[in-house]
């Protein structure tokens, strides 16, 4: 039960994007289409989980003084490997995400979780925590991207990054009613603010029944 709680914690209560405000750089920039958002979040989940596992496995060997340099070397190597794999197998996604794949290295989520969790817990628990935080990141960036793409272009489309096979391509809003603002930076900020406020309302409404019961 506590494993599931750990997982759901990373998705809702401590959502790294909307509750902890970590990794904002990539979330805001990559959320212009759900294609890019899902590609980015898969890369983040892979790097987060593998780095959590490696650091948890090495946590007894790393001297306490220089743990941050070791974490950065591990994460940078992983990101470079993922970037080279993406360049080889998913070239269109690689060009679309551009400079934000190397910037996963300095994504506050990965270094933050390595420092706060993986350095103190077992390999299994760190693995689950990595998946939980990665899924929280995915949920956050996917919601942001879906809203932005829907309002800005009127439709959603999903393409298989390996062979460009189109999964679906639907148009929900006719093109006369789309709001191109949401494709621009200002729209990203506004959508993010509204979603963050909604999560805050949800968190506060969740704590009210406790007061009523007493």
């Amino acid at each position: 039960m506590s494993l599931f709680k750990n997982l759901s914690n990373g998705i809702v209560k401590e959502n790294p994007v909307f509750a902890l405000y970590l990794g904002l750089c990539s979330v805001l920039a990559v959320s212009n289409s759900i294609n890019n958002a899902l590609g980015m979040s898969v890369a983040v989940i892979i790097v987060l989980t593998v780095s959590n596992v490696i650091i948890a496995a090495m946590r007894k060997i790393i001297p306490n003084d220089i743990r941050i340099p070791v974490y950065i070397v591990v994460i940078a190597t992983l990101v470079k490997i993922v970037e080279m794999l993406m360049q080889a197998y998913t070239p269109e996604l690689f060009t679309a995400l551009g400079v934000f794949i190397p910037l996963i290295v300095v994504n506050c989520i990965i270094l933050g979780r390595a420092e706060a969790y993986a350095s103190k817990n077992t390999v299994g628990a760190s693995f689950i925590d990595g998946i939980g935080m990665g899924l929280g990141y995915t949920a956050g960036i996917f919601m942001l991207a879906a809203i932005r793409q829907l309002l800005a272009t009127g439709g959603l489309n999903l393409v298989n990054p390996f062979n460009q096979f189109v999964f679906f391509d639907i148009t929900l809003i006719p093109s006369e009613f789309t709001i191109p603002l949401f494709a621009q930076p200002a729209g990203a900020f506004i959508t993010f603010a509204v979603l963050a406020a909604l999560l805050e309302v949800y968190k506060q409404s969740g704590s009210k029944p406790v007061k009523k019961g007493a």
Binding site: Y21, Q184, P185, A186, G187, F189, I190, A193, A196, L198
Partner: peptide
């Protein structure tokens, strides 16, 4: 609900 970071984001939107 908007106190703190969400309203800061809205300010950033206007500046953008």
């Amino acid at each position: 609900a908007l106190k703190g970071n969400p309203v800061a984001m809205i300010v950033a939107a206007i500046m953008a």
